[in-house]
Write a protein that binds this DNA or RNA. Structure first.
Length: 575
DNA sequence: GCCGTTTTCGGCCCGACTGTTTTCAGTCG
């Protein structure tokens, strides 16, 4: 009986839970080792089980933060599906540490204390105990702590948690705009994971400098968007916004703005790497500045901070605490694709299938986003739910595009398709129809629960088709809603190189590809495109999120085909 | 438990804020 294969995510969770247990017991240094290893695994583009099959423990040893001991533990998990060390821990403390510590302000120490005194094993147990006033009675806790825990549980149960960046960035920009209007404001910026453009955002962090801190804080607290002040110190404010998210506002002195911005942009792991480096160079880095002994080293800008640490500037999007500091030390950080560099969009749906806008309306919106070409990619007949086009209607659409192009000046509409990849890897349209198009793009929408081997074969068979140019949203995931289907992405990426098919970085809520796959594709020499997947004229703003995603995957403008003008783009796409 | 521009042994990031405390532990980022 084959056992269900253990996933990277499961291994990451086990390591994180072990780290929490070790922290609860005040074990020194080990917890960080487990956390760093978990981060290392999180940055992988392949499933460990596939890596292990391919090259054994050699590939596992290469993971940053994984040494001899943890490598053996990973191997044990991969081969037996279990980890003895972890099972022993769980026997001693039979509760879900990871789950309970998701409650705000409840860390490993508190979880242990609650378990020891009250034998609580779940978040629901904790809530019951709090409501019965049992937590306030524990020595070292009190009524306020108990209320805080209850608030934390409410937050957890509500529509809190992490949100997709698409829902958060516009809201945060609105806040920034309002605070900018105060004349005494010098700087006001988005920091934290939002500035790093992570796929999902847990809180909105803002940092500011001002000649009148009290005024800024007063105005901020009175904003319509601010629901409740949770914490307030001399220069740090923590609030709950009306959209349910939390956030910090930090008000600091302008002389250290660079160091402050670095600190509050994170990530936590990136900061640790920077501070360790500062220490090795007999300096000290914190949000208050960079110091050599007692002497303050100028850090007005982030560039200055990195320079003083002997590093090339590292863009926020790749500050994840992986290898970026090492690469910056060698001055090998590439120039990431600029936010305004796209010339075209290769995935646009119209009212011919499941979009809301006519072709002309979509063209108008695309132009407003600074584009000079756009491919119309309505779904094909296999996707009946989206009113997919059959051969006849697609040819009819082509004639309309011809008419439109004659009218347009300085903009080109390309005839294209989002052709469904059928279950067996064949395409949903005939070759003779595909030949009438400027670009053939394909994607998977059905039968998504097939086995990994079958799905990989299915997609590779489609990639082999001589007319195919682009594979849309290659893994099928939708952020925070739908997992990727089972797929060996390394094989797909290699097939794209072999058959000269470009991979899409989709800027919609899919944000598909994952950044690790983007980076891997670039290393393998596979072409990429960034698309909005617009189904409405307003959706071209997705391009910004697609670019952010590409930047997180270390993409330069040269790696992204649709940074080229139309002619160069078509030439590069051609087989 | 990891790792090396001080190294294969001896280090391992920094500070703010809260709550329950008379000096600090816990959590967060």
């Amino acid at each position: 009986m084959p056992r269900k294969k253990i996933t990277n995510k499961q291994i990451i969770d086990i390591f994180r839970e072990i780290a929490l247990h070790l922290r609860a017991e005040d074990v020194a240094f080990k917890p960080r080792a487990y956390e760093v290893a978990a981060e290392g695994i999180a940055g992988l583009s392949d499933e460990l089980t596939d890596l292990y099959k391919e090259c054994g423990t050699k590939c596992i040893d290469d993971i940053p933060g994984v040494g001899k001991d943890l490598s053996a533990k990973i191997e044990e998990l991969l081969t037996t599906g279990k980890l003895d060390y972890y099972d022993q821990l769980k026997k001693k403390y039979p509760f879900d540490m990871l789950d309970i510590s998701r409650i705000q302000d409840v860390g490993p120490k508190t979880v242990f204390k609650l378990y020891r005194v009250l034998k609580v094993k779940t978040v629901a147990d904790v809530e019951r105990a709090a409501k019965q006033n049992k937590i306030a009675a524990i020595p070292g806790m009190g009524k306020k702590s108990q209320d805080k825990i209850l608030r934390g549980i409410e937050y957890l149960k509500g529509d809190a948690g992490r949100r997709i960046i698409h829902d958060v960035l516009p809201f945060a920009r609105g806040l920034v705009d309002k605070l900018k209007e105060i004349p005494s404001t010098i700087h006001i910026d988005i920091a934290g994971s939002l500035r790093r453009r992570k796929e999902t955002i847990g809180d909105i962090d803002l940092i500011a400098t001002t000649s009148k801190p009290k005024e800024l804080v007063r105005v901020f607290k009175a904003l319509r968007e601010v629901d409740q002040v949770l914490e307030e110190g001399p220069n740090k404010l923590m609030v709950r916004y009306v959209n349910g998210l939390q956030g910090d506002l930090l008000v600091l002195h302008p002389d250290e703005y660079g160091a402050t911005l670095v600190h509050f942009t994170g990530s936590r792991e990136h900061n640790i790497l920077l501070r360790e480096r500062a220490k090795r160079k007999h300096m000290k880095l914190s949000e208050h500045g960079l110091f050599k002994g007692k002497a303050r080293i100028t850090s007005r800008t982030e560039e200055q901070v990195y320079k003083h640490l002997g590093l090339q500037f590292i863009p926020p999007e790749i500050r994840v605490g992986a290898d970026e500091v090492e690469v910056a030390d060698k001055k090998k950080i590439p120039t990431l694709i600029p936010y305004d560099s796209l010339k075209g969009d290769l995935q646009v749906q119209t009212d011919w299938s499941d979009g809301t806008g006519s072709i002309e309306e979509m063209v108008h919106a695309a132009r407003e986003h600074g584009l000079s070409y756009m491919a119309v990619t309505d779904h094909t007949k296999g996707l009946t739910i989206a009113h997919g086009l059959d051969e006849k209607r697609l040819r009819q659409q082509g004639r309309e595009i011809d008419r439109l192009n004659k009218k347009l000046r300085g903009f080109t509409v390309l005839k294209s398709t989002e052709c469904d990849v059928l279950k067996d890897g064949r395409l949903d349209l005939s070759d003779s129809t595909l030949k009438t198009l400027d670009i053939v793009s394909i994607s998977v929408h059905s039968n998504t629960s097939m086995s990994k081997v079958d799905m990989t074969e299915r997609i590779i068979r489609a990639l082999k088709h001589p007319l195919v140019n682009i594979l849309f949203h290659p893994t099928g995931r939708v952020v925070a809603r739908r997992d990727a289907y089972e797929l060996n992405m390394s094989r797909v990426i290699r097939a794209c190189r072999e058959y000269h098919v470009a991979l899409e970085v989709n800027g919609s809520a899919r944000l598909d590809l994952h950044e690790a796959h983007i980076r891997q594709s670039i290393e393998e020499g596979v072409n990429l495109v960034i698309n909005s997947d617009a189904h409405d004229p307003s959706h071209f703003q997705n391009l910004e999120y697609g670019i952010a995603q590409a930047r997180r995957g270390w993409a330069t403008a040269a790696d992204i085909l649709n940074t080229k003008p139309l002619k160069g783009f078509l030439a590069a796409l051609k087989k």
